[in-house]
Amino acid sequence: MNIFRFAGDMTHLMSILILLLKIYATKSCAVGISLKTQELYALVFLTRYLDQFTDYVSLYNSVMKVVFIASSLAIVWCMRRHPLVRKSYDKDLDTFRHQYVLLACFVLALLLHEIFTFQEVFWAFSIYLEAVAILPQLVLLQRSGNVDNLTGQYVLFLGAYRGLYIINWIYRYFTEDHFTRWIACVSGLVQTALYADFFYYYYLSWKTNTKLKLPA
């Protein structure tokens, strides 16, 4: 494992922990956390890590899989079941039609996968779903206009994770003999592109030292 991938995993973990701590500390998911995005991410981890008990790669991978599944489920649980957090959730702003995205990703996974097995189709599904799972969150931020600091940092860390994974793939492409994984790389590029717009406005707010606001 190279340093870029490790840094990518750590920023990914940081983003999830920032969100979990924010919700836990403030007992609120206002302003601007999308339950739909969080449910999609939980589904991403659950469908990708079906190999947890069948394919062992490393202790690091196995532990991280459990941490990712548990932390993403904890966020969903808080937002759905915790009495105070649940009240702070504004579902009228969280309007992205995620069911179409789920269907599209599943059809794409049935058509485009490495091997036609249950695990592999769901692995491909999780990769496609991860690429677009941030969309409800970005739409929610767009609709509410205001982005509070922690929500901004959450998306920033997620974006950093994507960027570092791309550097990791470039590094592996040049240092490993048989590094070809089109599904993960192309989906990863699409996912990172979705953040580019947000990064631009985050950069502007940082540069001018003003509160992050997205254009309507």
Binding site: D9, V57, S58, K65, E120, W123
Partner: peptide, 10 residues
């Protein structure tokens, strides 16, 4: 390279 090896990332 087999498929197992291909999923060594998280």
């Amino acid at each position: 390279e087999d498929a197992k090896n291909a999923h060594d990332e998280l």
